[in-house]
Amino acid sequence: MKKMFKKSLLLVAALICGQASAGTETWNLGNAAFGGFGNSNYLSMNVDGIGLTITGWTDATNQGGNLTQSQLGRWSGGVGIENLYNPEHGVDNNNGFDALLLSFDTAVSLDGVSISWHQGDADMSFAAYTGGGSVNSLANLSWSQFLSNGWVSQGDYIGTASSAYRSVSSSVTSKYWLVGAYNPAFGGSANYASGKDYMKISGLYTQSPDTPDGNPGTSIPEPTAILLFALGLLCLRRTNKVS
Protein backbone atom coordinates (compact mmCIF):
# COMPACT_ATOMS: atom_id res chain seq x y z
CA MET A 1 0.00 0.00 0.00
CA LYS A 2 2.78 2.37 0.97
CA LYS A 3 4.66 1.75 -2.28
CA MET A 4 1.48 2.28 -4.29
CA PHE A 5 0.94 5.71 -2.69
CA LYS A 6 4.54 6.68 -3.42
CA LYS A 7 4.14 5.75 -7.07
CA SER A 8 0.90 7.74 -7.27
CA LEU A 9 2.56 10.79 -5.75
CA LEU A 10 5.41 10.59 -8.25
CA LEU A 11 2.91 10.40 -11.11
CA VAL A 12 0.93 13.40 -9.90
CA ALA A 13 4.12 15.39 -9.36
CA ALA A 14 5.17 14.65 -12.93
CA LEU A 15 1.79 15.82 -14.18
CA ILE A 16 2.10 19.06 -12.20
CA CYS A 17 5.56 19.75 -13.62
CA GLY A 18 4.31 19.04 -17.14
CA GLN A 19 1.31 21.29 -16.68
CA ALA A 20 3.32 24.18 -15.25
CA SER A 21 5.87 24.24 -18.05
CA ALA A 22 5.44 26.55 -21.01
CA GLY A 23 6.81 26.50 -24.52
CA THR A 24 8.45 29.52 -26.12
CA GLU A 25 8.09 29.93 -29.88
CA THR A 26 10.11 32.14 -32.22
CA TRP A 27 8.41 32.96 -35.52
CA ASN A 28 10.69 34.12 -38.34
CA LEU A 29 8.24 35.57 -40.85
CA GLY A 30 10.86 35.26 -43.55
CA ASN A 31 10.07 31.52 -43.48
CA ALA A 32 6.29 31.91 -43.82
CA ALA A 33 4.63 30.72 -47.02
CA PHE A 34 2.30 32.88 -49.08
CA GLY A 35 -1.18 31.62 -49.93
CA GLY A 36 -4.16 33.14 -51.72
CA PHE A 37 -3.81 36.07 -54.09
CA GLY A 38 -4.40 39.82 -54.34
CA ASN A 39 -6.07 41.43 -51.35
CA SER A 40 -7.12 37.98 -50.09
CA ASN A 41 -3.60 36.65 -49.72
CA TYR A 42 -2.14 35.43 -46.43
CA LEU A 43 0.97 34.01 -44.82
CA SER A 44 1.09 30.69 -43.00
CA MET A 45 3.67 28.77 -41.00
CA ASN A 46 4.06 26.21 -38.23
CA VAL A 47 6.43 26.32 -35.25
CA ASP A 48 6.66 23.54 -32.65
CA GLY A 49 3.37 22.06 -33.82
CA ILE A 50 1.46 25.37 -33.61
CA GLY A 51 -0.08 26.78 -36.78
CA LEU A 52 -0.25 30.49 -37.62
CA THR A 53 -2.08 32.37 -40.37
CA ILE A 54 -1.46 36.09 -40.95
CA THR A 55 -3.74 38.44 -42.88
CA GLY A 56 -3.45 42.19 -43.48
CA TRP A 57 -6.16 44.76 -42.66
CA THR A 58 -6.58 48.49 -43.10
CA ASP A 59 -9.20 51.24 -42.90
CA ALA A 60 -7.49 53.32 -45.59
CA THR A 61 -9.84 55.83 -47.16
CA ASN A 62 -8.94 54.62 -50.64
CA GLN A 63 -10.32 51.22 -49.66
CA GLY A 64 -13.64 52.41 -48.28
CA GLY A 65 -12.90 53.67 -44.76
CA ASN A 66 -13.98 50.60 -42.79
CA LEU A 67 -11.69 47.61 -42.29
CA THR A 68 -10.91 45.67 -45.44
CA GLN A 69 -8.40 42.92 -46.11
CA SER A 70 -5.25 44.14 -47.83
CA GLN A 71 -2.48 42.44 -49.73
CA LEU A 72 0.56 41.36 -47.77
CA GLY A 73 4.08 41.67 -49.11
CA ARG A 74 7.52 40.77 -47.80
CA TRP A 75 10.66 42.79 -48.34
CA SER A 76 14.03 41.79 -46.84
CA GLY A 77 12.27 39.42 -44.45
CA GLY A 78 9.80 42.01 -43.14
CA VAL A 79 6.05 41.89 -43.73
CA GLY A 80 4.10 44.96 -44.79
CA ILE A 81 0.72 45.84 -46.30
CA GLU A 82 0.08 47.12 -49.83
CA ASN A 83 -2.92 49.44 -49.88
CA LEU A 84 -4.96 49.68 -53.08
CA TYR A 85 -4.30 52.46 -55.60
CA ASN A 86 -1.63 54.09 -53.43
CA PRO A 87 0.91 51.39 -52.61
CA GLU A 88 2.58 51.70 -49.22
CA HIS A 89 4.76 48.78 -48.33
CA GLY A 90 4.76 48.97 -44.56
CA VAL A 91 2.43 48.51 -41.63
CA ASP A 92 1.71 52.20 -41.09
CA ASN A 93 -0.85 54.80 -40.05
CA ASN A 94 -0.61 57.05 -43.11
CA ASN A 95 -3.91 57.05 -45.05
CA GLY A 96 -5.61 54.84 -42.49
CA PHE A 97 -4.38 52.41 -39.85
CA ASP A 98 -2.77 49.13 -40.92
CA ALA A 99 -2.54 45.98 -38.80
CA LEU A 100 -1.73 42.28 -39.06
CA LEU A 101 -4.28 39.75 -37.79
CA LEU A 102 -2.44 36.79 -36.22
CA SER A 103 -4.59 33.65 -36.09
CA PHE A 104 -3.01 30.79 -34.10
CA ASP A 105 -4.56 27.34 -33.79
CA THR A 106 -3.97 27.36 -30.02
CA ALA A 107 -4.05 30.16 -27.44
CA VAL A 108 -0.72 31.89 -26.88
CA SER A 109 0.60 34.95 -25.08
CA LEU A 110 2.42 37.45 -27.27
CA ASP A 111 5.80 38.37 -25.77
CA GLY A 112 7.10 40.66 -28.49
CA VAL A 113 7.69 41.44 -32.15
CA SER A 114 10.76 42.21 -34.26
CA ILE A 115 10.95 45.05 -36.76
CA SER A 116 13.18 44.69 -39.83
CA TRP A 117 12.59 48.17 -41.24
CA HIS A 118 11.11 51.40 -39.96
CA GLN A 119 10.88 54.96 -41.15
CA GLY A 120 10.53 57.97 -38.89
CA ASP A 121 8.60 56.82 -35.86
CA ALA A 122 7.59 53.21 -35.20
CA ASP A 123 4.96 53.23 -32.43
CA MET A 124 2.66 50.20 -32.25
CA SER A 125 -0.72 49.14 -30.87
CA PHE A 126 -1.72 45.60 -29.86
CA ALA A 127 -5.05 43.89 -29.18
CA ALA A 128 -6.12 40.37 -28.17
CA TYR A 129 -9.44 38.65 -28.83
CA THR A 130 -11.14 37.58 -25.60
CA GLY A 131 -14.63 36.91 -26.98
CA GLY A 132 -16.24 33.60 -27.85
CA GLY A 133 -16.04 31.67 -31.10
CA SER A 134 -13.66 32.13 -34.01
CA VAL A 135 -12.47 35.24 -35.82
CA ASN A 136 -12.61 34.64 -39.54
CA SER A 137 -12.77 38.22 -40.78
CA LEU A 138 -12.65 41.87 -39.70
CA ALA A 139 -14.33 43.10 -42.87
CA ASN A 140 -16.59 46.17 -42.74
CA LEU A 141 -15.89 46.97 -39.09
CA SER A 142 -14.85 50.41 -37.93
CA TRP A 143 -12.10 50.49 -35.31
CA SER A 144 -14.66 51.38 -32.61
CA GLN A 145 -16.82 48.42 -33.67
CA PHE A 146 -13.73 46.23 -33.65
CA LEU A 147 -13.13 47.06 -29.97
CA SER A 148 -16.74 46.22 -29.09
CA ASN A 149 -16.60 42.79 -30.74
CA GLY A 150 -14.57 40.86 -28.20
CA TRP A 151 -11.23 42.60 -28.82
CA VAL A 152 -9.34 44.21 -25.94
CA SER A 153 -6.44 46.64 -26.30
CA GLN A 154 -3.15 45.29 -24.92
CA GLY A 155 -1.43 48.64 -24.90
CA ASP A 156 0.63 50.94 -27.05
CA TYR A 157 4.40 50.68 -27.30
CA ILE A 158 6.68 53.50 -28.30
CA GLY A 159 9.30 52.85 -30.95
CA THR A 160 12.35 54.79 -32.02
CA ALA A 161 14.54 54.66 -35.08
CA SER A 162 17.18 52.75 -33.13
CA SER A 163 14.94 49.98 -31.73
CA ALA A 164 14.10 46.80 -33.63
CA TYR A 165 12.16 44.89 -30.96
CA ARG A 166 8.89 45.61 -29.15
CA SER A 167 8.29 43.81 -25.88
CA VAL A 168 4.62 43.11 -25.15
CA SER A 169 4.00 42.71 -21.41
CA SER A 170 0.65 40.95 -21.50
CA SER A 171 -0.57 38.05 -19.36
CA VAL A 172 -3.48 37.42 -21.76
CA THR A 173 -3.56 34.25 -23.87
CA SER A 174 -5.59 34.20 -27.06
CA LYS A 175 -5.76 32.48 -30.43
CA TYR A 176 -6.15 35.86 -32.12
CA TRP A 177 -3.88 38.89 -31.88
CA LEU A 178 -3.77 42.18 -33.75
CA VAL A 179 -0.41 43.90 -34.30
CA GLY A 180 -0.41 47.29 -35.96
CA ALA A 181 0.90 50.81 -36.26
CA TYR A 182 -0.16 53.12 -33.40
CA ASN A 183 -3.95 53.53 -33.43
CA PRO A 184 -5.57 56.21 -31.21
CA ALA A 185 -8.88 54.29 -31.30
CA PHE A 186 -7.29 51.88 -28.80
CA GLY A 187 -7.23 54.61 -26.15
CA GLY A 188 -3.49 55.17 -25.91
CA SER A 189 -1.63 58.33 -25.03
CA ALA A 190 -1.81 61.24 -27.46
CA ASN A 191 1.99 61.45 -27.13
CA TYR A 192 2.21 58.58 -29.59
CA ALA A 193 0.36 60.54 -32.29
CA SER A 194 3.06 63.15 -32.88
CA GLY A 195 4.32 61.53 -36.09
CA LYS A 196 3.44 58.89 -38.66
CA ASP A 197 4.62 55.33 -38.00
CA TYR A 198 6.01 52.99 -40.67
CA MET A 199 7.45 49.52 -40.13
CA LYS A 200 7.85 46.01 -41.50
CA ILE A 201 7.43 43.12 -39.07
CA SER A 202 9.93 40.27 -39.30
CA GLY A 203 9.39 38.14 -36.19
CA LEU A 204 7.03 37.17 -33.38
CA TYR A 205 7.72 35.70 -29.94
CA THR A 206 5.00 33.73 -28.18
CA GLN A 207 4.49 31.42 -25.22
CA SER A 208 2.03 28.54 -25.15
CA PRO A 209 1.14 25.93 -22.52
CA ASP A 210 2.87 22.56 -22.92
CA THR A 211 1.07 19.31 -22.11
CA PRO A 212 2.83 16.08 -21.00
CA ASP A 213 1.72 14.08 -24.04
CA GLY A 214 1.93 16.91 -26.56
CA ASN A 215 -1.83 16.81 -27.09
CA PRO A 216 -3.46 20.08 -25.93
CA GLY A 217 -6.57 19.62 -23.85
CA THR A 218 -5.76 16.19 -22.39
CA SER A 219 -3.60 17.14 -19.41
CA ILE A 220 -4.93 17.35 -15.86
CA PRO A 221 -5.76 20.97 -14.94
CA GLU A 222 -3.17 22.34 -12.53
CA PRO A 223 -5.56 22.99 -9.57
CA THR A 224 -6.85 19.41 -9.86
CA ALA A 225 -3.34 17.98 -9.91
CA ILE A 226 -2.33 19.97 -6.85
CA LEU A 227 -5.44 18.76 -5.00
CA LEU A 228 -4.62 15.16 -5.88
CA PHE A 229 -1.07 15.64 -4.68
CA ALA A 230 -2.27 17.06 -1.34
CA LEU A 231 -4.73 14.19 -0.87
CA GLY A 232 -1.97 11.70 -1.64
CA LEU A 233 0.28 13.20 1.02
CA LEU A 234 -2.53 13.01 3.55
CA CYS A 235 -3.24 9.38 2.74
CA LEU A 236 0.45 8.47 2.87
CA ARG A 237 0.75 10.14 6.28
CA ARG A 238 -2.20 8.15 7.61
CA THR A 239 -0.76 4.94 6.17
CA ASN A 240 2.53 5.56 7.95
CA LYS A 241 0.70 6.05 11.24
CA VAL A 242 -1.22 2.79 10.85
CA SER A 243 1.90 0.82 9.94
Results as ranks from 00 to 15, higher is better:
143 W>K: 10
140 N>I: 14
71 Q>Y: 09
234 L>Y: 06
223 P>Q: 13
38 G>Y: 15
189 S>C: 04
239 T>H: 13
180 G>Y: 01
121 D>P: 05
48 D>F: 01
191 N>P: 10
210 D>Q: 15
196 K>V: 08
122 A>H: 01
53 T>K: 09
4 M>F: 10
78 G>F: 03
197 D>H: 07
49 G>R: 02
89 H>C: 15
178 L>F: 05
163 S>E: 13
54 I>R: 02
181 A>W: 02
43 L>E: 06
132 G>I: 12
154 Q>V: 05
127 A>W: 03
226 I>W: 06
155 G>H: 02
122 A>I: 00
84 L>D: 11
99 A>R: 05
234 L>A: 14
156 D>C: 11
121 D>R: 06
145 Q>E: 13
87 P>K: 11
174 S>E: 00
219 S>K: 14
220 I>A: 06
202 S>E: 15
4 M>G: 12
84 L>R: 12
129 Y>P: 04
150 G>A: 05
124 M>A: 12
215 N>G: 08
180 G>V: 00
78 G>N: 03
134 S>E: 10
104 F>L: 08
70 S>K: 02
14 A>K: 07
70 S>T: 07
133 G>A: 05
123 D>P: 02
64 G>V: 01
121 D>C: 09
24 T>F: 07
173 T>P: 01
115 I>S: 02
224 T>Y: 05
157 Y>P: 00
207 Q>D: 04
188 G>T: 03
242 V>R: 15
107 A>F: 01
213 D>Q: 15
152 V>A: 11
220 I>V: 09
195 G>M: 08
209 P>T: 05
31 N>I: 07
80 G>E: 03
78 G>A: 09
167 S>D: 13
46 N>P: 09
74 R>V: 15
120 G>Y: 10
16 I>P: 01
176 Y>K: 08
81 I>Q: 03
39 N>D: 13
202 S>T: 15
155 G>R: 03
225 A>R: 00
147 L>T: 03
70 S>M: 04
189 S>Q: 00
227 L>P: 13
27 W>A: 02
2 K>S: 14
38 G>A: 12
23 G>R: 05
62 N>K: 09
170 S>V: 05
7 K>D: 11
89 H>G: 12
199 M>D: 05
150 G>S: 07
156 D>K: 08
228 L>N: 02
150 G>C: 07
120 G>K: 08
8 S>F: 14
19 Q>I: 07
240 N>E: 15
154 Q>F: 07
129 Y>L: 07
189 S>N: 00
2 K>P: 09
150 G>Y: 04
200 K>M: 14
144 S>I: 14
169 S>V: 06
206 T>C: 03
92 D>Y: 10
